[in-house]
């Protein structure tokens, strides 16, 4: 067991964890932040994407103990209160989901994409950047549309 201090969605969390605990399990089981999903066991699907110190990572391929002193943001911490984040709103408006399982990971990846590439994301960039996120319902058309819209809205 190791004692860790992690800043999760703006809150300081100080807990003993078993060393082998994956970040995704720590978030879901210990912290009950179940918006971060597990869609595969091979770090390919991207349903578990969260931000660690502002960068998108797959929380199923990182240990909780590796997050000591770091800032972790999950889909639950994207906004303060009830109002949706611009990217969440764009996914809603563009109907960029069907079952919704991949959506939290898609949105966290999309927000990171805007951070790195700026507001004017073109379709090629979005599709290249989405390689680490798999959706088995929509065929991606509306997801790409939503990320374009969301990226523009985020800059306002």
């Amino acid at each position: 067991m190791t004692r860790v201090t992690i800043y999760i969605n703006g809150e300081t969390v100080d807990e003993e964890v078993e060393d082998r605990t994956l970040l995704v399990d720590f978030l879901r089981v210990n912290r009950r932040l179940t918006g971060t999903h597990v869609g595969c066991d091979t770090s390919q699907c991207g349903a578990c994407v969260v931000h660690v110190d502002g960068e998108a990572v797959k929380s199923c391929a990182m240990l909780a103990v590796q997050c000591e002193g770091r800032d972790v943001r999950t889909i639950e911490g994207l906004t303060d209160g009830e109002a949706l984040h611009a990217m969440q709103k764009a996914f809603h408006e563009c109907h960029a989901l069907q079952c919704g399982f991949c959506t939290p990971g898609m949105i966290m990846s999309a927000v990171d994409m805007v951070r790195r590439h700026g507001a004017e994301l073109d379709e090629t960039t979005i599709r290249h950047e989405l390689e680490g996120n798999i959706c088995r319902c929509t065929g991606y058309e509306n997801i790409v549309k939503a990320i374009r819209q969301g990226s523009r809205e985020m800059q306002r």
Binding site: S43, G46, V49, E55, A56, V57, K58, A61, M62, S109, D112, M113, E129, E131, G132, N133
Partner: peptide, 9 residues
Amino acid sequence: IGDAQVRNR
């Protein structure tokens, strides 16, 4: 290499 999230780690 890999995908954006893998490249970050």
